[in-house]
């Protein structure tokens, strides 16, 4: 965030330049941004207040500005929905495993591609980077995945994401900015390349790896298309996919709602009985909450990521 602050600002408005037009402009400008911020933030707020309001009220669409009949039992109840605990586990697993794999591979390859002694280094570097600019297309990819046995396979969520040219370029650029002497000194002491990587470079790459990690994690968590194309096995559905089904399949959802309510027996009164609306809202909030929490904390990494990308572009 700090990177985007401008330095020249304070001097620009002081003095005699403040005219009536300026004041009007400022009012319009501030109002415009308040409006934009509300347009971006309110939908999230709307989902959240509906997920914690009485379910009979949220089903009528009466919860608009503040939660009504506040309760948190939805978040416990949705986990009784068939398939949801599994989908949450799959989403979590692919995010953790996929992100770890992407980060380690990007760090390693970014480092290795700076090793000038490597056989045909330039060729292999281009071999990897050029894949950013073409794609065989959805169907050939689907057929190949099928031939490789990766359809209906958890690893389809991880393996295609391991080698990511863009991240490798980011890391390589970063490593090139680190002092070469680090490696030379260690090698004089007899350290192998792997040792140099793990003991010296990896621990000193954390700023760039944090950026890579946060992008990779968001991509993994949000991914929907790969489930749609490569997966029919319900035990491999992700939260995103389940949410999509919940939005479109009102009938099966009502059924699911009944089952979820049944598990709770006496507790189920009108305010806490699951409705299609309450289920959709609650699952949406489950899906979006990690992003909302993580995003402001890591915003500077996101910003750094796009800046580094821009330098390259």
């Amino acid at each position: 965030m700090t990177t985007t602050h401008t330095e020249h600002k304070p001097t620009q408005v002081t003095g005699h330049t403040r005219t009536g037009g300026d004041v009007v402009f400022s009012i319009v400008n501030y109002s415009f941004f308040i409006l934009l911020a509300v347009l971006c933030a309110y939908p999230f707020y709307y989902l959240i207040i509906n997920s914690v309001s009485a379910n009979d009220l949220s089903a009528l669409g009466d919860v608009r500005l503040f939660p009504q009949g506040f309760h948190l039992s939805n978040f416990e109840q949705v986990f009784h929905l068939q398939g949801l605990p599994m989908a949450a586990a799959v989403s979590l697993a692919r995010t953790v495993i996929g992100t770890t794999a992407t980060v380690l591979a990007s760090a390693f390859l970014g480092f290795m591609f700076t090793q000038e002694r490597m056989w045909a280094r330039r060729f292999w570097y281009r071999f990897v980077v050029i894949t950013m600019y073409f794609s065989a297309g959805l169907i050939p990819l689907f057929i190949i995945m099928k031939n490789l046995g990766l359809t209906n396979n958890f690893w389809v969520y991880v393996l295609p994401f391991v080698v990511q040219p863009f991240f490798i370029v980011l890391v390589k650029t970063y490593v090139e900015g680190m002092p070469r002497e680090l490696q030379e000194a260690a090698e004089v002491d007899g350290a192998s390349v792997l040792r140099v990587f793990f003991m010296i470079y990896l621990p000193n790459m954390t700023p760039i790896l944090a950026t890579v990690a946060i992008f990779a994690a968001v991509t993994q968590w949000n991914s929907f298309q790969d489930t749609l194309i490569y997966v029919t096995d319900q035990s491999l559905y992700t939260l995103q996919y389940l949410l999509y089904m919940f939005i479109n399949q009102a009938n099966s959802l009502a059924q699911a709602a009944q089952n979820a309510g049944g598990n709770l027996g006496a507790l189920a009164d009108a305010a806490s009985t699951q409705t299609p609306t309450s289920i959709r809202m609650t699952v949406s909030v489950l899906v979006v909450l990690p992003i909302i929490f993580i995003y402001p904390l890591f915003q500077r990494f996101f910003v750094k990521g796009i800046m580094l990308g821009a330098v390259k572009g």
Binding site: T4, F44, L243, V288, I292, Q299
Partner: peptide, 18 residues
Amino acid sequence: QTLTTLPNFISWVLVYMI
């Protein structure tokens, strides 16, 4: 900035839900 960049980080499924 924080509020207006947030939508970029949610999936299209969630946009559709909204």
